[in-house]
């Protein structure tokens, strides 16, 4: 059998990936809506079933906007923007998976964006805890962010190998 022919098993696998990606999109969308409402509830004291607390460090947990120093609030807003950017990247990535696009340049770029968001978020946490002189930072997010960027690089190399194989007749 010529290996250039497409196996019917691949279509079934792609369908499963597409379905799972759509489910993940729905869950992510729900999570984003909930997260945005929590952030707005904290900022504008909107009604919420439980008291929202923002832990910046072990000894600095804020339950209202008025308790937050200005510098910490500014960094907190940047952090929220970064988290939103990460969610948008993740949503776009699942949308590509839902379309059956698994290893394109755009996929890899979005995974890199996620990695950078995690690293920059870690740096913001470091800055906030430094400002409060209350350091209790874990290195895990930094390590995870670097590993995600490494995985994106490996995927990019794999994509180039796959392209060469696709152009082998």
């Amino acid at each position: 059998m010529n290996s250039n022919k497409i196996s019917p098993k691949i279509n079934a696998r792609l369908d499963r990936i597409k379905k799972a990606a759509r489910v993940c999109q729905c869950l992510l969308g729900t999570n984003v809506v909930f997260g945005v409402y929590c952030a707005l509830a904290f900022l504008f004291a909107w009604p919420f079933p439980h008291r929202i607390r923002i832990p910046i460090s072990p000894n600095h947990i804020y339950s209202s906007l008025s308790e937050m120093p200005g510098e910490i609030f500014a960094l907190f807003l940047v952090q929220e923007g970064l988290i939103m950017a990460a969610y948008v990247a993740l949503f776009a990535l699942f949308r590509l998976y839902g379309q059956g696009i698994l290893f394109s340049v755009r996929n890899i770029l979005l995974i890199r964006v996620l990695g950078y968001c995690i690293i920059i978020n870690w740096l913001l946490n470091y800055q906030m805890q430094s400002a409060l002189a209350d350091m209790a930072l874990s290195m895990t997010p930094l390590f995870v962010g670097l590993m995600i960027i490494f995985v994106a690089w490996v995927m990019d190399e794999g994509r180039k190998i796959r392209e060469e194989q696709e152009l082998t007749v």
Binding site: E164, T168, V169
Partner: peptide, 9 residues
């Protein structure tokens, strides 16, 4: 556009 051709092809 092909990068390689198999002998079988």
């Amino acid at each position: 556009k092909a990068k390689a051709v198999r002998f079988s092809t």
